[in-house]
Simulated scan of single mutants.
Amino acid sequence: MQHQERNGIFDLSKTGQPFRIWDRSAVPMEGDVLKPFAYEEWLGREIGRGEQGPGVHIWRHRRGAVLGTRDRRLPHAEDAIRELEHEGWSVGVRNSGGAFVPLDDGVVNVTLLMPNSDGRMEHRADFLRMVRLLSVTLSAWELHAEAGEIAGAYCPGEFDVAVAGRKFCGIAQRRQVRAVNVQAFVVAGGSGRQLAGVAERFYAIAGGGHTGLDYPRIVPASMASIAELAVDPNLNAETFVRELKDVLIGLGGVEAPLPMPPEGEVANLAYKLRERYDHR
């Protein structure tokens, strides 16, 4: 990989030190879906204070439904949340941008956590780091990834990442005082259409049939997993993570144990996130 491409993803001249690869994706998490976001909130603070260096957090969660703040304000959001919880989904409202995202075993969550000591506001550049990382990773399957909003996709935005017009990834950012977290959900395995159906049903209930409300109109065929895009039945979350880590190691990353927060810290932060963004 050329030097210019390397710096387009993780510029070591800016981070000042090698970055860590924190991979907890081998077994999908269960329970409160806000806990991994709370963990990243804590980790971002540690990075901002210089207690931890930059890194990439990789994780999965089984049956997690993550809402955006606008989703939570829909008139029948409470009914839609109860329906999901009745079916065994853990529901939470995240503190980064975006809209409803369903998580399952085939979805790999990838977060770039970087220091931002000078308070720079390079939103677009930080989004593009993730786009480049995914583009390089997908080249292993000869897939060409492009960024741009995909009509009909769930969690739509300028930095949807798609192949041949079908979205497999969305990106959001959480900017802290001295750190930046760039979060991506990557539908690596399974059915993109099936996940889109979950989002479609959420909005059908939460919107109550009101056509004038501002929420995504889901077209399930607009979504696909990487496995579906590559037409490779052997491609799944695990094979995607292996390729992703090979790319990250080639960029200078080093696998490392997960930093451990003080006991109870993640649960406390998850509680605070729920109180602030999802008070019921």
Rank of each mutant, 00 (worst) to 15 (best):
L133V: 04
P75G: 01
Y39G: 02
E51L: 14
A65V: 09
E51S: 14
L74I: 05
L67F: 06
H144L: 10
M121P: 14
E51P: 11
A65Q: 09
G53L: 08
A65G: 15
L112Q: 10
S139W: 07
R73C: 04
D104N: 13
H61F: 02
R129V: 01
R94S: 00
P115L: 04
D126V: 11
G48F: 05
G50Y: 10
N109L: 02
Y39T: 00
R82G: 10
V91Y: 06
G88C: 08
E40N: 10
V131I: 08
E51V: 08
W59H: 04
G92L: 00
G98E: 00
S135K: 13
A147E: 05
L74C: 03
L134K: 09
L134P: 12
R63V: 01
R63Q: 13
H57A: 05
L128S: 12
R120S: 14
P75K: 02
D126T: 13
E78F: 07
G92P: 03
I58R: 04
G88A: 06
P36G: 01
G92Y: 06
A65F: 15
I81T: 05
I81Q: 10
E85Y: 06
I81L: 12
A140Q: 15
W42R: 08
A38H: 06
A125S: 14
L128T: 13
S90D: 10
L113F: 11
L113R: 14
A38F: 01
R60L: 02
W89K: 07
N116Q: 06
W141T: 02
M130G: 05
L112H: 07
D126M: 11
F37G: 04
L143E: 07
G68E: 00
D79M: 10
G106I: 01
R120L: 13
M130S: 10
D118K: 15
A77D: 12
R72M: 04
A77W: 09
A99E: 15
L138R: 08
V56S: 05
L138W: 13
G88R: 04
H57F: 15
A65K: 10
A145Q: 07
R60P: 03
R82D: 08
R129P: 11
I81P: 14
D118H: 15
